[in-house]
Design a protein around this nucleic acid. Structure first.
Length: 561
RNA sequence: UGUCGGGUCGUCUAAUGGCAGGACAGCGCCCUUUGGAGGCGUAUGUAGAGGUUCGACUCCUCUCCCGACAGCCA
């Protein structure tokens, strides 16, 4: 998709603002995560949107941490978020920003509102505040503390700051309208008392601004033009606007879009945290997690993620994106870029009885048929090879084109072989398959053109390297994991087979020195990535990124009743 | 029975008063030394009812359906 063609309701708004010169021709966006968890694919959508817009319009982009709640936030999350935003490709202006750096200004602004008679210190408890707020259909009641004098409010607010009161004893509230049909306008809380150490401010503060109070100020201070957030903040926009108007400061425009939902996936921070803390997965970067760190470890590329974000576009209606679109994006990317390799995951030995013992040939193999520049490599071939158990059936089902007794297949880049005999143990397990080869059918020879129905992959037994391969699948069995039985939650929909570890895989020699993070297509199987943390020279560990589209699997599925 | 927002192929998304198009998924065929890739083709959609108009996905009215909001979370 070319940048020119991109069009959505947000870009339309920006075009309109540019036309009317609303922000003097400026475009300045931001990505404002709270450092209370790892970034996930939904955040990638937001980064791609905000950063993409800044880039397209020659504007600016800020990375700003919305660190206004010390009870939930940690430095570990700050670090991971910075790494993830960079990996996704978001380049932020000069330095990383923190809402907590504006705390002093926010305090002064609050004093300004108090002085205007637009904010007051309230002594109501949490329960009382809820009670006074009213309900969705009934108006609320005014707090008995609502009409304190400016002097009293100023004094109390100063004493809140200086630590005179315990948590929850007092709040600073905006004086708006307790009867507003929009609950957010019923005297919302601006400051609460939290005696807790902040990851950047230490013990400097014991009052912390709420999101509604803080966010618009952050945007205003940074000169943001378009403050893009998700739909659940739509009802907060009147409040965002109210604060900035009362403050009489620079006023950005808030625009809301629908957050990303992915089938077979959960994307709420709470649920992701639960998966990690209850050890249903191995950590935030477990390759099954929809976190940026998880996708990275799995082997996804930033380009594929960007492409995915472009495909799904952005709108206001709620939607659930088919996870197949994500899989399509990574396949499309890796098909063009990943070098091909031979790997046998479930090996069974084949002995080519008419091939000389002790002979080894070097056969030329193409590294990437989609990219001639990737060149070729040599593949050792010998009398004993491994093939995939699945590529042999003693009793072949209909339409099965691979090896079976008396039948021929081509070995990729090598010869056509014919199955002559199956050697089993007493229990009936297949130990070896004995084949003969046709020496005239070597890849590239005159007779090589002889047609056989199938080509299978293989690895020379004496040259094979042992590898561990981790087969990852969807983490959840249900399209909507939240759709659980009575009394159960999304965890009951976990896929028990989302990870299968194979320890005795046989791979071609070149793969023995795969570097951490390197990606390959294992021919006929899928795309794999050498694990970033655990792969070692001579003892490689591969993560399956995604399978190849497998039309045989589909045929087989259909044959079954 | 509050306020705000939303409803276009199975799934996303275009068309902003002028041929309902694209992608993914599906199906069929061709091609193929990866049952991959690629090529070609095919089916499927404007929530409903009225109205305005030469002409409506688009504008108006009503109805229906879905989502968000009653944290001192963001």
């Amino acid at each position: 998709m070319s940048e020119q063609e991109k069009s959505d309701f947000i870009r339309e708004i920006i075009n309109e603002d540019l036309k009317t010169n609303k922000f003097n021709g400026r475009v300045h966006t931001r990505f404002p995560p709270e450092p209370n968890g790892y970034l996930h694919i939904g955040h990638a959508k937001s980064i791609n949107l905000n950063y993409g817009i800044a880039q397209e319009y020659g504007g600016k982009f800020n990375l700003r941490f919305d660190d206004t709640n010390p009870e939930k936030e940690e430095q570990e999350y700050v670090d991971s978020i910075i790494e993830d935003v960079k990996w996704i490709g978001g380049k932020f202006e000069e330095k990383i920003l923190f809402a907590s750096d504006y705390f002093e200004t926010m305090y002064e602004y609050a004093v300004r509102l108090i002085t205007k008679g637009k904010a007051y210190v309230c002594d109501l408890s949490g329960d009382q505040i809820r009670e006074y707020r009213g309900t969705l259909t009934e108006p609320g009641k005014e707090s008995p503390y609502r009409n304190r004098t400016v002097e009293e409010n100023l004094d109390l607010f100063q004493r809140m700051r200086s630590g005179e009161f315990a948590n929850g004893l007092k709040t600073l509230r905006a004086k708006i309208d307790m009867a507003s049909p929009n609950i957010n306008l019923r005297d919302p809380i601006m400051y609460r008392i939290i005696h807790e150490e902040h990851h950047r401010q230490g013990k400097q503060w014991c009052i912390y601004p709420t999101y509604d109070w803080a966010h618009g100020i952050e945007d205003s201070l940074e000169g943001i033009t378009h403050s893009i957030c998700t739909l659940e903040f739509e009802n907060h926009r009147p409040l965002y606007d109210w604060f900035l108007e009362e403050l009489e400061v620079y006023h950005p425009r808030q625009i809301e879009f629908a957050r990303l939902n992915l089938s077979y996936t959960v994307l709420s921070k709470r649920k992701l945290l639960k998966l990690v803390s209850e050890k249903h997965v191995a950590g935030w970067d477990d390759p099954r997690m929809p976190t940026i760190a998880g996708y990275r470890r799995r082997g996804y590329t930033p380009e594929a993620i960007k492409n995915f974000c472009d495909i799904i576009s952005v709108a206001k209606r709620d939607s659930v994106i088919d996870v197949a679109l994500m899989e399509f994006s990574i396949r499309e990317d890796l098909n063009k870029r990943a070098r091909r390799a031979m790997a046998v995951l479930h090996p069974v030995k084949v002995v080519i009885t008419n091939y000389p013992e002790n002979k080894t040939e070097e056969l030329s193999a193409v590294n990437n048929p989609e990219d001639e520049a990737a060149g070729t490599r040599m593949l050792p071939f010998s009398r004993e090879i491994f093939i995939e158990q699945d590529d042999f059936r003693e009793v072949p089902p209909p339409k099965y084109f691979r090896l079976s007794p008396g039948k021929e297949v081509r070995l990729r880049y090598a010869y056509i072989i014919k199955c002559e005999k199956v050697i089993k143990d007493e229990a009936g397990n297949i130990l070896e398959i004995h084949c003969t080869y046709d020496a005239e059918t070597k890849s590239g020879m005159a007779n090589a053109g002889r047609k056989v129905k199938a080509t299978i992959h293989w690895v020379s037994a004496p040259h094979a390297v042992n590898a561990e391969v981790r087969l990852y699948d969807r983490l959840f069995l249900k399209e909507n994991p939240d759709e659980a039985e009575e009394g159960k939650d999304f965890l009951s929909n976990l896929n028990p087979h989302s990870l299968e570890v194979l320890n005795s895989c046989k791979v071609e020699p070149m793969l023995g020195s795969a570097k951490a993070g390197e990606r390959f297509q294992f021919e006929r199987l899928g795309y794999f990535c050498a694990d970033a943390k655990e792969t070692k020279e001579g003892a490689p560990v591969f993560n399956r990124i995604v399978t190849l589209k497998d039309s045989w699997a589909k045929i087989e599925q259909k044959e079954k009743p």
